[in-house]
Amino acid sequence: MSTSSSSGPWPLLLLAWLVALLSSLSALFIGEVMGQAPCVLCWFQRTFMFPLAVILAIACYRSDFAIWRYALPLAGIGAALAFAHTLLYAGLIPQPIQPCTATGPSCSGAGMTIFGGVPLPMLALFAFVLIAILLLVIRRRTAP
């Protein structure tokens, strides 16, 4: 299978890396430039997104389409955390089990939005799910 084909896995791998890179840089921009401190769940999500940006970059450089074996668990766990954070933001998780109420920034406060009201947890969920879908398509296209 040719790696230069637009229907091959290479553009998908590049897109997965670009999503992870943009998500990581956006998280750093929001925290460091805009001065918005991340909540506990945001920190946990970052622990899964930042390594994705690194390992997907290496996979792009090496044209390693088997990266889905290592990146898909990171994207899946990150998506689960972002989904829980989205439920928390929407008020669907009961107050006693909310992780961010004791100290630090609120996981569901008004500061968890960008672009005039788009919730950050939903953006993170979208990014993790998109990366996971791209990795699954890469897996299907490169399976023997």
Rank of each mutant, 00 (worst) to 15 (best):
A84D: 09
I55P: 03
W68K: 01
F65W: 06
C60I: 10
F83G: 15
T86F: 15
L56Q: 04
A84V: 15
W68E: 01
A53N: 01
L72F: 12
R69T: 07
A84I: 14
L72W: 11
T86C: 12
R69M: 08
F83H: 13
L81D: 09
S63V: 00
A59I: 02
Y70T: 00
A59L: 01
L72C: 02
R62A: 11
A71R: 03
A66S: 12
R69A: 09
A75H: 06
L52T: 06
Y61D: 00
L81A: 15
Y70S: 07
L72D: 06
A79Q: 09
G78S: 11
C60T: 12
P73M: 06
L56T: 07
I77M: 14
D64G: 00
L81H: 09
R62W: 10
C60S: 12
L81Y: 09
A71W: 02
W68A: 00
A57D: 05
D64N: 13
V54W: 09
G76K: 11
I67G: 00
I55F: 08
L81G: 15
R69V: 06
A59E: 05
L52M: 11
F83Q: 13
L81C: 12
F65P: 02
G76P: 06
S63K: 13
A66W: 01
V54P: 04
A57T: 12
F65I: 03
A71T: 05
A66T: 11
A57G: 14
A75Y: 08
C60H: 04
Y70Q: 06
P73H: 06
A53P: 01
F65E: 02
A75M: 07
A80N: 08
A79L: 08
P73T: 06
C60V: 14
A75T: 07
A79V: 05
I77T: 14
L56A: 05
Y61E: 00
R62S: 00
Y70H: 08
D64Y: 10
L74E: 02
V54M: 12
L52N: 05
